[in-house]
Amino acid sequence: MSGILDIVYAEYNYWIYVTLMMIGFYAMIAKKNLIKKVIGANIFQTAIFLFYISLSDVTGGTAPILMGGHGGEHAADVIYTNPVPHVLILTAIVVAVSTTAVALALIIRIYNEYGSLDEDVIRAARRELQPEFSEHARQKSVAEVSEQ
């Protein structure tokens, strides 16, 4: 029992990362507003960044900047944190902001077309504009295909 509790205490960063990821996932699926969905996607992305940065942290380590560089006294016994996940996440942050920008541009376009950001309103307006996408027509076409 104490072994499990030790893991829960020692790895608390990972528990928070899973919690944040699930909060973002819930927002992406359950929220009707499109901007709320993008906010959920942002939370999801930063949760994964938190996982990588937690992974790279070393107990007693310091920032990965060379101690005694630039002609100073070189210190050999310094522990550094792992800089490779940092570099990965540095690129991932830029990718995250690009995907957010594309998603928001699409949201503006959708708003100009349908006059709403609510998923249900957009779906209803779309069904009205294009009857071939309605549920009834889809079932009819499925029935036609199965007859053939």
């Binding site: 906010i39 960044f49 790279s56 900047i65 940092h86 942050i93 830029v94 902001v97 957010t100 928001l104």
Partner: peptide, 24 residues
């Protein structure tokens, strides 16, 4: 957590530019 480069990139890009994009 000693990842200073990621920290200030997040402060500039995550807290800065993303907010500006959302408000726009």
């Amino acid at each position: 957590m000693h990842s200073v480069d990621v920290g200030f990139t997040e402060a500039a890009v995550g807290a800065g530019i993303t907010t500006v994009l959302f408000i726009a």
